[in-house]
């Protein structure tokens, strides 16, 4: 492989990894606190993307004079709010009643919520199952550095993923709410005894997790400007793998897992496209066999 190609693929990998990392952050937050693989997380992303789509289309029919950067920031806010709302709604209606029931019923419910969102959106007459072109919020600008092509949206993806990770780490480690989150994650009952409002903490986590999904949704839609109700399934699955890879429940781990997976997938694909398709799961299986707690996860001793 030539050197420019090598670096080009590295950039490609970082971009893909940034998308995975953004989705993985949300997965890891929710899993960390209630031990639920929230299969519907990838569909919160889709909800966020559609919310921005309708918002931006509406604004653009009113005026074309709005500066792109303002439009993007407004869009981002819409995505965060839409993602947070749909996540909390799912939590309230579907997950909360099952909080103290067997975990696997909650997991099956998550599958149900995921299917419901996908099919519901596909059935709504004004959305439908088909693909939609996502409007350009920011004008794509490409530039060449030493034969390697970069563009502004790639940099935005990578930058925002890192910023959000730092922000989350700060919230979890430095705030009272973060402390409550960690306590609930370790032992719900003990946390309750310590005067922590467990349900409020979980709600907070779902709001943050949903907002992250919304952010991932708008960035994914800007990077790959084609949205449809099933858009979250495949990246969601890969992002979950990324979260497990990094050590599920661990925020920097989700980030690391996302980037590693993105880069590995790009290089594997450029070697052989068949290999690229299976690499995510192959890596996952190997890592879990060698280090079941993931790369940055802490080893949990088995309770007897």
């Amino acid at each position: 492989m030539e050197l420019t190609t090598f670096f080009q693929q590295l950039i490609n990998g970082l971009q893909l990894g940034a998308i995975y990392a953004l989705i993985a952050l949300g997965y890891t937050m929710v899993y960390g606190i209630i031990r639920l693989i929230n299969f519907a997380h990838a569909d919160f992303l889709m909800v966020g993307a559609f919310a921005v789509y309708f918002f931006a289309s509406f604004i653009l029919t009113l005026t074309n004079a709005i500066p792109p950067i303002i439009l993007f920031i407004l869009g981002l806010i819409v995505a965060l709010v839409a993602g947070a709302l749909i996540a909390e709604l799912s939590n309230r209606l579907a997950y909360k009643p099952l909080r103290y029931k067997p975990r696997l019923s909650a997991l099956i419910t998550a599958v149900g919520v995921s299917m419901f969102l996908e099919y519901f959106f596909a059935s709504l007459p004004f959305i439908g199952p088909s693909f939609r072109a996502f409007p350009d919020l920011l004008k794509p600008v490409s530039f060449v550095v030493g034969g390697v092509y970069l563009n502004n949206i790639q940099l935005l993806d990578i930058g925002l993923a890192i910023v959000l990770m730092i922000l989350l780490t700060f919230i979890v480690n430095r705030t009272m709410m973060g402390k409550a989150m960690r306590a609930v994650s370790q032992d719900k009952d003990a946390a309750k005894l310590m005067g922590i409002n467990v349900e409020r903490t979980i709600t907070f986590v779902f709001l943050i997790g949903g907002a992250l999904a919304g952010a991932a949704g708008i960035l994914m839609a800007m990077t790959y400007p084609r949205i449809y109700p099933n858009m979250g399934i495949l990246p969601g699955l890969k992002a979950f793998v990324a979260a497990v890879l990094g050590g599920i429940g661990n925020i920097p781990g989700a980030m690391l897992g996302g980037f590693l997976l993105g880069i590995a997938e790009i290089y594997a694909t450029s070697y052989n496209s068949l290999l690229g398709e299976g690499i995510a799961f192959a890596i996952l299986i190997i890592v879990l066999l060698v280090r079941p707690q993931g790369l940055l996860g802490e080893k949990q001793s088995e309770k007897v």
Binding site: L107, F240, L288
Partner: peptide
């Protein structure tokens, strides 16, 4: 070696 959710995701991968 794996349990619960981890096993789930590995079987899904397989």
């Amino acid at each position: 070696r794996l349990k619960g959710d981890y096993l789930a995701i590995v079987t899904l991968g397989f």
